[in-house]
Nucleic acid binder design. Structure first.
Length: 430
RNA sequence: GCGGACGUAGCUCAGCAGGUAGAGCGUCGGGUUGUGGUCCCGAAUGUCGUGGGUUCGAGCCCCAUCGUUCGCCCCA
């Protein structure tokens, strides 16, 4: 029986063309965050199971992650997210790090779930975090970075919206309208999280089941406000609303105005403590949350260290690629190979030297070794996405003039290796 | 974990009421001597996802299983 060639469920093979697209996405992320002074870090892909237990029960964690016992009987988990890891790393060196700390990484993450659109079992996620800044300027910078990445891909502000909310604000409201009891608040939070996905009537009906009828109506109106400006005075003066307003001002000064106030934005109900944000795709075909983040001041403190102010976001490659696809923002895939050498009279020491000379000039060249006819060799180069072919036969080797063909334009020119190198390097910049 | 849809050559799919498979694209070769993407000619390729059942006979019906996909749950 033949072995299956499919990759593992919910995971992907990256063929060279796929890997090129991924490299483009990651390189863009790297160049943007590094421009803001963020430094790359990394950590093991396996963590002790306990690292993820603070959020929920062991049962839930093991159900939704790749968890197992190692040969020494230790319970371990393949990391499903990076935030606990980075918090652990910061806690471990809490005293010696230079704050504000600006860190990023692009880890490969795994979760044990049923795959669906935009959500696989295996994915990569850019994590950008700033530690040690209690002021709103941390949120400001993090959102600037997220916005700058979107723009670096060629996205225009109309293609996405940045939704904003405050966990402190929503907690205050729920405290007033629902209960002080966490167990009663949780189902309401879950419901609010789904508000955008359901019709108003349905939402109200569901809300009425959880909250006293008079209060439900008021709460529903509150949650539906289009702008924090429209909140009743009682909440309008709340410190967190003032902060949200202030943040919006800061963002506007930086040119980020595609902000949407959204009291129903929850981002789960885990470690976020204050302002949260999410970037939404505005395209009707892909109208969904793409990525987001917020402030999570308490996490580092879980490791016994004094707590550290933390703001960050995570941007997954799967949803990002969907976004780029829908908006036609992925550039045409081009090979890393600068030129393909087509052999007219077969391989000879002269050909090898020519190739070697080009490589010494730091060009990437591949030599066709198929022994097939010239037209087949050209077709191979086209298929590989290589833009140039260099023809080498006895004639070329004799007078050291080589034919360089641009496959995109069809233009040919005959010249020496040095000039060829110059042309090839120039074409790289584009 | 739950529900729906789907699973036929490398890819996209067709296959009419059950009688042991086709198209387009791609691939490979050719259209004379060192050149692609157009055109023409020719060729190869499938245990019809897998296992079982019904039937004289199944790609087509039934069951199971695996996988893909959409949604739910959950969201890191």
């Amino acid at each position: 029986m033949a072995l299956p060639t499919q990759p593992y469920k919910g995971a992907r093979d990256f063929y060279p063309a796929d890997k090129r697209a991924q490299k483009y996405m990651f390189n863009t992320m790297r160049s943007v965050v590094e421009r803001y002074g963020y430094e790359e870090y990394d950590a093991p892909i396996i963590e002790p199971l306990e690292l993820y237990l603070s959020k929920s029960s062991e049962e839930i964690v093991t159900e939704q992650t790749y968890s197992f016992e190692d040969r020494g009987g230790r319970k371990v988990t393949i990391r499903p997210e990076m935030t606990p890891t980075v918090s652990r790393m910061v806690a471990a060196k809490r005293q010696e790090l230079a704050y504000p700390l600006r860190w990023y990484s692009i880890p490969n993450l795994w979760r044990y779930e049923r795959p669906q659109r935009g959500r696989l079992r295996e994915h990569w996620q850019l994590n950008v975090d700033i530690f040690g800044v209690e002021a709103l300027t941390a949120e400001m910078e993090i959102i600037f970075v997220a916005d700058a990445i979107m723009k670096a891909y060629g996205a225009t502000p109309d293609m996405y919206a940045i939704r904003l909310n405050s966990r402190k604000l929503i907690n205050a409201i729920l405290h007033d309208y629902v209960s002080e009891d966490v167990d009663k608040v949780l189902p309401v939070i879950r419901l609010i999280d789904h508000k955008a996905k359901m019709p108003h009537d349905e939402f109200f009906a569901a809300l009425s089941k959880l909250v006293d009828s008079e209060k439900a109506k008021e709460l529903h109106e509150l949650l539906s406000v289009q702008s924090f400006d429209d909140l009743p005075e009682k909440y309008g003066k709340h410190a967190s609303v003032q902060e949200l307003m202030e943040l919006k001002k800061l963002l506007a000064v930086g040119g980020v105005t595609n902000i949407v106030d959204d009291l129903s934005l929850m981002r789960g109900f885990d470690y976020y403590t204050d302002i949260v944000f999410e970037v939404f795709d505005t395209n009707p075909e892909n109208n969904r949350s793409m990525f987001g983040g917020g402030r999570y001041d308490g996490l580092v403190g879980l490791f016994g260290a004094e707590s550290v102010a933390s703001v960050g976001f995570g941007m997954g490659d799967v949803t990002l690629q969907d976004f780029l696809d829908v908006h036609s923002l992925l550039p045409a895939s081009r090979s890393e190979t600068d030129a393909y050498i087509a052999l007219v009279d077969g391989l000879s020491p002269g050909v090898q030297k020519a190739a070697s000379d080009l490589r010494k000039m730091s060009l990437n060249v591949a030599v066709d070794l198929s022994g097939r006819s010239i037209d087949k060799q050209i077709k191979t180069a086209v298929k590989k996405g290589i833009n140039y072919v260099i023809f080498i036969g006895a004639k070329e080797l004799a007078d050291e003039q080589f034919t360089l063909k641009n496959l995109e334009t069809g233009k040919e020119e005959k010249t020496d290796l040095k000039s060829i190198a110059t042309i090839l390097k120039d074409s790289r910049q584009q």
